[in-house]
Design a protein around this nucleic acid. Structure first.
Length: 569
RNA sequence: CGGGGCGUAGCGCAGACUGGUAGCGCGUUUGGUUCGGGACCAAAAGGCCGAGGGUUCAAAUCCCUCCGCCCCGACCA
């Protein structure tokens, strides 16, 4: 292919609305163009790279025994009513009506469609295990689309679903996908770490996310260097020391704290550190108010809270609800005397001599001994784990990193197969419910994660496996027929060797071609010019290296193949 | 949804406070000189200044409404 025959336009400046490196580079290098918020067009160059990622995904899915299918993106809403997710995922789904006024959705994911499908298709244990997958466009009405392809309203996902006869068999299917994911990300040139994760709206009991470590990542990961424990902050647990209660805390006493509402204000007023406080938050779980207690210097992890209570919606209570539940305005809630359920963080078990709100305006209490002075419904792990907390496995210190979630694997159990009555007959003719797993890779996000992980000040540095073109042939003297012929010959030879390449045949000065080649990020650059030919050949330079070598014209293609194979990533 | 910021040529920006009907750089087109890390000279094309309404003799500029985009937060009592 020749540069002048394709649609590549590079930009010297990044558009003002691009924030992170990978987003800027993908726009500047002409891979993407924006249509609107969270909506992007893949230009020829970007689409080539995307197709390569898809191809790797396809090969590894096939290798793992999964079967490719393609389900509709447009789906009847009844399916979502049947699973109950029209309610839980509703706000994040695009909905529309057809001319019959039937409510439809644009699929944000496909558990419903696939379970309905397998429930109809599978009737015997002989058909199991069965894992199907598709590479398809998903639609999500994101609260806030961000950073180009990282969080888009429309994006390409590879989603796979496994169906098994038993939990043990399902574990094997899960492991097969987990292993396939490991291979996929490696082949894409990514360093992705599996971490324990929250299951969110998908549901299920167990899941791992594949995280690419990057400062631009939207998730926080807690890692233990000692034992290898790694978890998304949404799920991360910590080891808590069970401290012996102080023998004699004086009776709980009111103290006036006029206008001091926040922990910070009361802490300053009473001259007690935030850690001595019991922070009391009033939430509304579905429709009922509940109180949540955490140490004054800690934050609540709402995902954990939601999971523990088992509610569908969870939000901080408004001022009226707080007044009704505590009898006091916002800022003076405390555990003593509350008539609503109280959930306390496990670290507060045996807490004595603490400060908390008194459930009276402008008043706090001191000498609060939690189990003596309040009726705690349950103690459980509720705080957001942070750097410095102790590993729940080995009690060493945890560290935080930022990560981009590129893949997520779930053990779902029978949540969906129950809802869709997906049963099969076993050897004895008994009907059993299939055990399900689901597995997603954000294909478009993965592409951007690669750029985020592989770049320098000059531009993208593509891993050879997913570069739009593996070789950029810079034709420096396009009007010189001999030189141009050499470039074309090299291109043909490379193509014959299965190495895709692009000849930059523009009538531009060399400087522009060098800059653009670096920006676009060809893994290998071959310079063909009157000067190089006079010196005896064609210049070969890897994007990841500083020096070049001169290859005789007849040897250039072979040498390129060799260089590329030595620098897979 | 709340807070903040921004909408002027394909991209990056100035002009706005102090109204007088639009400019710079890059890019694009043409011609010329150049030609190994984003050259130079000359000429040219390209804009209902996000949309609607108002004030005014006159609005990119002032006022109101809406729309779009970006960032922060989705929350600490």
């Amino acid at each position: 292919m020749r540069w002048t025959q394709t649609l590549i336009s590079t930009l010297r400046d990044a558009p003002q609305d691009a924030e992170i490196t990978s987003h800027k580079l993908m726009i500047r290098a002409g891979l993407l163009r924006k249509l609107g918020g969270g909506l992007y067009t893949f230009m020829p160059l970007g689409l080539r790279a995307l197709h390569k990622v898809e191809q790797i995904v396809r090969e590894e899915m096939d290798r793992a025994g999964a079967l490719e299918i393609l389900m509709p993106a447009l789906q009847p809403a009844e399916l979502w009513q049947q699973s109950g997710r029209l309610e839980t995922m509703g706000p994040g789904m695009f909905k529309l009506k057809d001319r019959q006024e039937r409510l439809m959705t644009l699929g944000p994911t496909h558990e419903e469609v696939v379970t309905d499908l397998l429930a109809r298709e599978v009737s015997s244990y002989r058909q199991l295990p069965c894992t199907v997958y598709q590479i398809q466009t998903k639609f999500r009405d994101e609260i806030r689309p961000r950073f180009g392809l990282m969080r888009a309203k429309e994006f390409i996902m590879k989603d796979a679903y496994s169906f098994d006869v038993s939990l043990e068999a399902a574990d094997a299917s899960y492991q097969a996908m987990y292993d396939a994911y490991t291979r996929i990300f490696k082949r894409c040139g990514l360093t992705a770490h599996p971490v324990e994760a929250d299951t969110g709206d998908i549901g299920g009991k167990w899941s791992h996310e594949f995280m690419v470590v990057a400062d631009a990542g939207e998730d926080a990961i807690l890692e233990c260097a000692a034992c290898g424990y790694a978890a998304n902050q949404e799920r991360a647990e910590r080891h808590v020391c069970t401290c012996a209660p102080a023998a004699d805390t004086p009776p709980m006493t009111d103290v006036a704290t006029p206008d001091a509402r926040t922990i910070q204000e009361v802490s300053a007023f009473l001259k007690r550190p935030a850690a001595d406080f019991i922070k009391t938050l009033i939430y509304v779980a579905d429709t009922k108010p509940v109180a949540v207690l955490v140490p004054g210097d800690r934050d609540v992890n709402e995902q954990k809270l939601k999971r523990f209570i088992g509610c569908k919606s969870l939000a901080l209570a408004d001022d009226d609800t707080i007044l009704k539940a505590t009898g006091a305005p916002v800022g003076f809630a405390g555990p003593a005397g509350l008539a609503i359920p109280i959930y306390a963080d496990a670290s507060l078990r045996g807490a004595t001599d603490r400060v908390a709100g008194a459930n009276k305006a402008d008043t706090h209490v001191i000498h609060l001994s939690l189990e003596r002075d309040a009726k705690v419904t349950d103690f459980t792990d509720l705080v957001a784990v942070v750097t410095g907390d102790l590993c729940p496995r080995c009690q060493q210190t945890l560290n935080t990193k930022r990560g981009i979630e590129v893949g997520h694997v779930f053990k779902l159990g029978t949540q969906y197969t129950d809802a869709f009555n997906a049963k099969f007959l076993n050897e004895k003719g008994e009907p059993l419910t299939m055990i399900m797993g689901c597995y997603g890779i954000g294909v478009t996000r993965t592409l951007q994660a690669v750029v985020e992980q592989h770049n320098d000040a000059d531009g993208i540095i593509w891993p050879a496996a997913i570069a739009p073109y593996q070789v950029g042939i810079l034709l420096l003297d396009p009007k010189d027929e001999t030189v141009a012929a050499h470039a074309q010959k090299l291109s043909d030879k490379l193509t014959a060797l299965g190495i895709d390449n692009l000849i930059d045949d523009r009538e531009e000065r060399p400087g522009i071609k060098f800059k653009d080649a670096d920006l676009v990020g060809f893994p290998l650059r071959a310079v063909v010019g009157a000067k190089s030919l006079a010196q005896g050949g064609i210049e070969l330079k890897l994007r990841s290296e500083k020096t070049f070598t001169l290859a005789p014209v007849d040897m250039a293609a072979e040498q390129i193949r060799e260089k590329l194979s030595r620098h897979k990533n």
